[in-house]
Every structure is written in C-alpha cells, then in structure tokens.
C-alpha cells in the first residue's frame, strides 16, 4: 500500500547553515557543546533535531513560513526523520515516532496536494514529498529566525527554565 508518511520519514530535511552557530549551538548540544556550556549558556535541547522540531512548531503556530534563500548554505543532521528520537539512548526520553506523525499531519494540512491526481497517478509521489519537506524546512526556518531574534534581544531570558515553553504558549 502506498504510504506518504513512510516516504516522508525517510527524508533528511535541511536548515539554513547560518543558524548552526546562531541558534543550534546556543540552544542545544548540537555542534559539540558540553554539559557545562549547556548550563552556563542556557542550552535546552540535547540534540539538534529536537530544536528543529521545536522551531518547526514555533514557525507553524506563528505562521512564520520563510523559505531558505536559494543562495544560503544548507545543512542537515545526516539522520532521516524516522531515526529522530529513536537513537537517543536516554532511557527516560520517549520515542519520537508519534511526534513524527503529528509533524507529518500538520504538513499535509498546510501543503497544497492534489490527492485525486496523486491517486490517479497523474503526479509523482516524489513531487508531493519534496513539497512536504519544503514546507517542513520553511516553517522551521521561520521558527529559527524568530528564536535567533529573541536570543539577540534578550539572551538572559533563555536561562529561565520555562522560557521556551512560554514562547510556545504565547505563539497563538
């Protein structure tokens, strides 16, 4: 049976490499942060893709859909979506497969897809998936830009335990 979700899960989405230093290294251990740096600099996410998911939802709720500039250098985690959260090795952390479904369903909701044409075979699955991944990257990019601006405005706010939660709460 044809399954868009499985195809989606096998992809590796990109992000604007500019935010690697500006956002990922400041708010996660991605990029070689240590526990000490995490504590002192307010790094809240253990992995880069956790921050990616967070940024996606932030962009989604705030409707911050920003295409990554064509000329921008892109980067990714070299790990397909299906493996996000599965290989954390942290006993107390939960599996992210359900989270992947919610992300996917949100992307289906937000992406223009002619399902009849798809079912009839008039358009290729790859085209649809590419479109979905593009949506994923754009919302995430919007979220990352928002985070970057927030960090630049008030870096100390990020030391507050509830700050990232508050940003989500306030996003609608």
């Amino acid at each position: 049976m044809e399954n868009l979700f499985e195809s989606f899960r096998s992809k590796i989405p990109n992000f604007n490499a500019d935010y690697k230093v500006d956002v990922f290294e400041k708010l996660s251990l991605y990029g070689g942060g240590t526990d000490e740096r995490r504590d002192s600099r307010g790094k809240y996410f253990e992995t880069g893709y956790e921050l990616y998911i967070y940024a996606f939802f932030l962009g989604l709720y705030r409707n911050e859909f920003v295409t990554i500039p064509e000329k921008a250098k892109k980067e990714n985690f070299r790990v397909p979506i299906k493996d996000w959260g599965n290989k954390s090795g942290k006993i107390l952390r939960k599996d992210f497969s359900q989270m992947q479904e919610y992300i996917f369903s949100a992307l289906i909701a937000k992406t223009e897809i002619d399902f009849i044409a798809l079912e009839k075979g008039e358009i290729e699955e790859d085209v649809v998936i590419k479109n979905i991944i593009h949506q994923f990257e754009c919302f995430t990019n919007g979220g990352l830009i928002y985070l970057k601006n927030k960090y630049e405005e008030h870096p100390a706010y990020f030391m507050r335990a509830s700050y990232l939660l508050d940003l989500i709460k306030e996003s609608i």
């Binding site: 809240y44 967070y54 939960k94 359900q98 939660l165 609608i172």
Partner: peptide, 16 residues
Amino acid sequence: ENYTTSLLDDFWILMH
C-alpha cells in the same frame, strides 16, 4: 522544571 523536555516527551508542544 525540565519543561523543555516535556514539550516533546509529553507532547506539550501540541497545546495548539
């Protein structure tokens, strides 16, 4: 106070 972890692990991020 690991609210950030709960955002993902406990699906708090799905509040909206």
